[in-house]
């Protein structure tokens, strides 16, 4: 250890080109496969619909990435989505004018959930996996209690605008779903904070070595709590979009937490912290959706999706570990 930086393996000469995250190649290949299966995908309605359906997961994955890079996990986001959808339908009570304040309340709930997750992890020292698992169960229970067991009512169209509405008759692209605008804006904001601010660099530092970060003066708890808040707020955004096109049910957010984690891992994020990229996490989410779409085309039943997702999660982590070992450290 004391010696030099010699590579451990006599590896082949280093490539001159900068390393490109493999997730982009995988995504490109999958899109080609989808087009082969269904040529209509190249039409704006084809890919726009794909992006629209992928938008909630992509936003969720980008938010989850904050917690992953900080060295934790946020399992509570799926139930938070459910709570947002169920809670919004209860609160709006079919009143279109209620949309705006209900959305504000939902962001308030998201802020609260993120703060509690972060405070529990930082001050009660509960590992994030357990803290957010507890939050996941609690929020699910709250959603069921709130809806009285069976959700009723509908979300008004003014609320469903974000998830469902398409601008049509546009030049070139013809249609533009609002969900995609939300994805682009949220994705850019999340990208900016992760890769262009102190917050992002400090987040990487505390995920990499929290003790060293603390001794260097980093406000570790503040940064960590902020990561949980970002993740929760991204879940609220995802919930609002899903409420728009998935309708009201108590299992609307089911499984989204693991899909989001899978997406970040597909994007090359380091589980246990220290490394991750927002664009790659979004590409990871699109990759996951593309795989699901392909499975659909192939007529495989829903349970197969779960098997595939599980295998992808394991393979993606294994691939990341393998690449890092090859790189020397």
């Amino acid at each position: 250890m004391s010696e030099n930086a010699l590579p451990h393996e006599p590896a082949r000469p280093r490539r001159a080109l900068p390393q490109i995250n493999p997730v982009y190649f995988v995504l490109a290949a999958l899109i080609v496969a989808i087009i082969v299966q269904n040529p209509a995908f190249v039409e704006p309605t084809g890919y726009m619909n794909f992006l629209k359906r992928a938008a909630p997961l992509a936003i969720l994955a980008a938010g989850q990435l904050y917690v992953i890079v900080s060295g934790g996990f946020d399992l509570s986001v799926g139930s938070l989505i459910t709570l947002v959808v169920v809670g919004s339908s209860m609160l709006t009570n079919n009143d279109p004018n209620a949309t705006w304040w209900v959305i504000a309340v939902m962001f308030g709930i998201g802020l609260g959930v993120g703060l509690i997750n972060g405070l529990v992890v930082c001050y009660l020292k509960v590992p994030s996996l357990i803290a957010t698992l507890g939050m996941m169960i609690t929020l699910n229970g709250l959603a069921l209690m709130w809806s009285g067991g069976a959700p009723r009512g509908y979300l008004p169209d003014s609320f469903r605008f974000f998830g469902r509405f398409n601008f049509t008759d546009l030049p070139v692209i013809r249609i533009l779903p609002v969900a995609i605008i939300v994805l682009v804006v949220a994705g850019f904001v999340l990208y900016w904070f992760m890769h262009r601010t102190n917050f992002g660099r400090l987040l990487h530092a505390i995920g990499d070595n929290p003790r060293a970060a603390r001794l260097a003066g980093v406000p570790v708890n503040r940064v960590r709590i902020s990561a949980f808040v970002v993740s929760s707020l991204s879940a609220v955004v995802a919930g609002i979009l899903l409420g728009g096109f998935a309708g009201v049910s108590t299992d609307v957010g089911l499984g989204y937490e693991l899909q989001a984690i899978t997406a970040t891992v597909l994007g090359g994020a380091q589980l246990l912290g220290g490394r991750g990229s927002v664009p790659a996490a979004i590409a990871g989410a699109l990759t996951l959706m593309a795989i699901f779409t392909l499975l659909n085309f192939l007529g495989l039943p829903q349970p197969v999706r779960q098997v595939v997702q599980g295998l992808i999660l394991i393979l993606a982590v294994a691939a990341t570990v393998y690449r890092q070992r090859r790189a020397g450290r």
Partner: peptide, 19 residues
């Protein structure tokens, strides 16, 4: 206690100033 090993040399140098 000192390094954030996955981060760049520059990021390690900048750590306290950014904090």
């Amino acid at each position: 206690e000192g390094l954030t090993p996955m981060q760049s040399v520059r990021d390690n140098g900048m750590l306290t100033a950014r904090a």
